[in-house]
């Protein structure tokens, strides 16, 4: 077996993030796309569980989304937040109970679809990350015509829609739990070119 194959412009394979990213990937305010006192701040939070229904204590989540008016940011500063610029990117590790929390704003609809936040899941044991989307429960009408939700079997669609669960510190709160396996296994997406 050759030890090295010259670059042939073929995809570099994925490998797991492993258990020991905690000193490297999370960064200060990574989970706060806006400060908590932003007038339109929302909480997007949930728990990541495995096939035994057990919370995963070492998952890493990233979100990527448009701003409130549906515009995708091209601003730098996601890693070194200035507290004012909305970059649309966030990253956080779950806590020991498998729970994550982002502070952000609800994105506006982009190009006519229903508003959503793109969620990426990395974890030890997950050799290739997973993409999913967190939609918002109040956009019932837009969900009817959303191309991605329409591609999902009806009985699994609910796994892509967050649940309004009240108010947290003045911010509207949405719960988006992620099940890697099991009866409520989250729908994960494979983006074709």
């Amino acid at each position: 077996m050759p030890d090295f194959v010259p670059t042939d412009f073929v995809q570099t394979p994925s490998q797991t993030v492993g258990p020991f990213y905690g000193f490297a990937l999370p960064y200060e305010n990574g989970s706060q796309l806006v400060p908590g006192h932003h007038p339109h701040a929302i909480r997007l939070h949930g728990t990541v569980t495995d096939g035994a229904g057990v919370a995963i204590p070492d998952a890493l989540l990233e979100i990527w989304q448009a701003d409130e008016s549906g515009v995708l940011g091209h601003s730098r500063g996601s890693l070194d937040r200035d507290g004012f610029t909305f970059t649309g990117f966030g990253r956080t590790a779950v806590n020991l109970a498998g729970h994550y929390t982002f502070t952000t704003v609800k994105p506006g609809a982009v190009s006519g679809g229903a508003p959503y936040v793109l969620v990426t899941v990395f974890a030890r044991g997950l050799i290739h990350h997973l993409f999913t989307r967190a939609y918002f429960p109040e956009d019932v009408e837009a969900h009817q015509t959303d191309t991605v939700l329409s591609a999902v079997p009806r009985e699994r669609r609910a796994t892509l829609v967050s649940v309004a669960d009240g108010v947290a510190g003045g911010a509207a709160s949405y719960r988006f739990d992620i099940s890697l396996q099991g009866a409520a296994e989250t729908v994960f997406l494979n983006f074709d070119a």
Binding site: G51, L79, V110, R124, D192
Partner: peptide, 28 residues
Amino acid sequence: YRSSVLRHPTHELVRVDPEEVERVSPAF
């Protein structure tokens, strides 16, 4: 790789077209 057993999705990934959100990337 034992940790993969309970952590991989058992359903087929749902194949969809990327939309604008997925077709751009954060700027650093």
